[in-house]
Design a protein around this nucleic acid. Structure first.
Ligand SMILES: [Mn+2]
Ligand SMILES: [Mn+2]
Ligand SMILES: [Zn+2]
Ligand SMILES: [Zn+2]
Lengths: 140, 140
DNA sequence: GTAATTAATGAAACAATGTTTCAACTAAAG
DNA sequence: CTTTAGTTGAAACATTGTTTCATTAATTAC
């Protein structure tokens, strides 16, 4: 789907930096870090604008943030089908060796019991391990 | 259990700043942020030492870090019973209104299917919502 | 208890991620 | 084309965390 159409469909203004951001994410099968996106946006990249657009586009349901840990954050386009506003309903995988991150779109987060009176809003699940391209025999 | 005994049992040096850190965490039922710990450590607090001790004590199984998101991290003592080295086997809850964080020690993280060849190392589950003391009627 | 050894501490400087303010600019609507 | 409301980018700042290295404290050997 074309960046222009995605923006129009979600009713946010079509600007050059947003189009470049969406294009950058479309060049990859996997979620990307800010630096990986910067490298793909070339001169259309500005840090402040990037962070603002991440917020706007994530609120409008175009993309989602994946917090691996406090120092690693990835960004991915949402599946075109789903238009949830901020609910990430699937699990994420992170390879501790190569850093590759995968949206496991087919793996829904499970329901966990909460103490009485507690209300659930969202549930983040990040699985860390080693992808099939990485041996990861770190203790063998 | 006394800080001194905890440190001895896990075979790390008994220093003033480590004892003060453990004491600080023991004053609270819930996980604490760095600032909340600082306020409880008074003049025994130093940022660099704090971060180094968090690393050492977490590697030795005395405490664990809870990454709520990239800007909110909490710290909690491990249950005395369990001596897992870095495996957090339980789910965490975070109240979006008051920031209170709860170790749901009785709620184990569930098993999720991974793509072929992928190896699991750890799985972080953070549930965000509203605790029983917070209405959280943010859209009602 | 004292000396020797080994690890921990704290100052300074830095790094990564993200935010706020505000003037200039651009996209969308009329 | 003009207006207007939203977007951009510069500067400065905030938070979380690390690295280096000289000094200091904790443990071990005597
Ligand atoms: Mn995803
Ligand atoms: Mn916990
Ligand atoms: Zn890998
Ligand atoms: Zn609350």
């Amino acid at each position: 789907m074309k960046p222009n159409d995605i923006l129009q469909q979600h009713e946010v203004k079509k600007t050059l930096s947003r189009i470049a951001l969406i294009k950058a994410l479309q060049t990859s099968e996997q979620p990307l870090s800010e630096n990986e996106i910067r490298d793909r946006m070339l001169d259309q990249y500005d840090r402040i604008t990037f962070y603002r657009n991440v917020q706007t586009l994530s609120e409008s349901g175009i993309l989602h943030r994946i917090v691996i840990d406090n120092t690693h954050v990835k960004y991915a386009l949402n599946c075109c089908e789903k238009e949830h506003h901020h609910a990430i309903d699937h699990v994420h995988f992170y390879c501790k060796e190569c850093g590759k991150t995968v949206c496991l779109d087919e793996v829904p987060v499970q329901q966990y019991p909460l103490p009485d009176g507690f209300k659930l809003d969202e549930c983040d699940v990040v699985i860390k391990g080693y992808c099939k391209d990485c041996p990861g025999n770190h203790n063998a």
